[in-house]
């Protein structure tokens, strides 16, 4: 009797935990379905292509063109990656291939701090340091006038926010390269740097790409820090010194007004759906690649 009781408990616990596990998984599906259903009204009103390629955003007049926001997101993310990738790659190479463990002991906590800071703090930093830098230093030196709330400022802030993610991913990937592979090149007389380029990077190229894609998805979704420095103008930016308006900023800025108009709400949910969909795809791709690399 006693024994049966224990087994029964075990069984019930198993079922219960299975339900918890599966339902937490279903969150992904629920998000996709929920956001899709919410964006159905706007998709019935306008075609997908029209929404994505139209440049005019006047919700009250029924004009929902997402093109400026898509471009804003794209420019800002590319710039952020352009800043973050070289810095992170060099740093990760230094930490895995050159550095003594004493150096790592001091650098890792720095990365922890950078990774842990909330995005609103990055936003404050952007407003206090980067925006004035752009308006007082960069713009005058190019003989331009700028408020500082620009693609450039947003890209810099966003780039800094993804550096810790990139560095930790790169370090993890590089550490999977066996000591022997490195020694094979070194024993032929290759320098450390040649070994890094020809063995380490070559062998981990898929992982490096996956890490970059993951970082890209992170830059796409960053919200508060972006709002605070991007300028929030619904235009297609034509230079680094133009304001921009990435998609997350659009959603967050208008959540208050959106209830005034059903189609407005649907349009914003559609924006969230696009974001979800792209980020999901990027994440799925890079996680699968990274998993395969790390299991090898």
């Amino acid at each position: 009797m006693m024994k049966n009781n224990r087994l029964l408990k075990d069984r019930i616990a198993e079922q219960l935990m299975a339900v918890m596990t599966i339902s937490s998984l279903l969150l992904v599906v629920a998000m996709a379905v929920g956001l899709y259903l919410k964006s159905v009204p706007i998709l019935q009103e306008h075609s997908l292509w029209e929404l994505l390629s139209e440049g005019e955003w006047r919700p009250m007049a029924g004009r929902f063109g997402f093109f400026p926001f898509l471009m804003g997101t794209l420019y800002v993310s590319l710039l952020a990656l352009g800043i973050a990738i070289p810095i992170s790659l060099l740093m990760a190479i230094y930490l895995t291939e050159y550095a003594h463990s004493a150096v790592k002991r001091y650098v890792f906590p720095l990365l922890d701090i950078l990774a842990g800071l909330p995005s609103v703090i990055y936003g404050v930093w952007g407003m206090l340091v980067i925006v004035p830098w752009v308006s007082d230093v960069v713009a005058p030196s190019l003989r331009r006038d700028s408020s500082g709330y620009t693609v450039l400022a947003t890209g810099v802030v966003l780039g800094v926010t993804v550096i810790p993610l990139l560095v930790s991913l790169f370090i993890e990937i590089f550490s999977n390269v066996g000591r022997e592979s490195r020694e094979a090149a070194l024993s032929l007389g290759a320098t450390r740097w040649q070994t890094t380029m020809d063995v380490v990077l070559r062998q981990t190229a898929p992982g490096v790409i996956a890490a970059v894609v993951l970082a890209a998805s992170r830059t796409l979704g960053e919200t508060i820090a972006v709002i605070m420095v991007c300028g929030n103008l619904a235009i297609v930016p034509s230079s680094l010194l133009d304001a921009c308006y990435p998609i997350p900023a659009l959603i967050a800025n208008n959540y208050g007004e959106m209830l005034s108009l059903p189609l407005y709400e649907s349009a914003l949910m559609f924006a969230a759906f696009i974001l979800f969909f792209v980020v999901l795809g990027f994440n799925l791709f890079s996680r699968l690649v990274l998993r395969k690399m790390n299991n090898r």
Binding site: G178, S181, A185, L186, S187, L188, G189, D198, V199, R202
Partner: peptide, 17 residues
């Protein structure tokens, strides 16, 4: 120096090429 003193590794270890 390392060109003059070659190494045959413990486990076969082709370069990734």
């Amino acid at each position: 120096l390392r060109r003059n003193i070659g190494l045959v590794p413990q486990r076969p270890c082709p370069l990734p090429m």
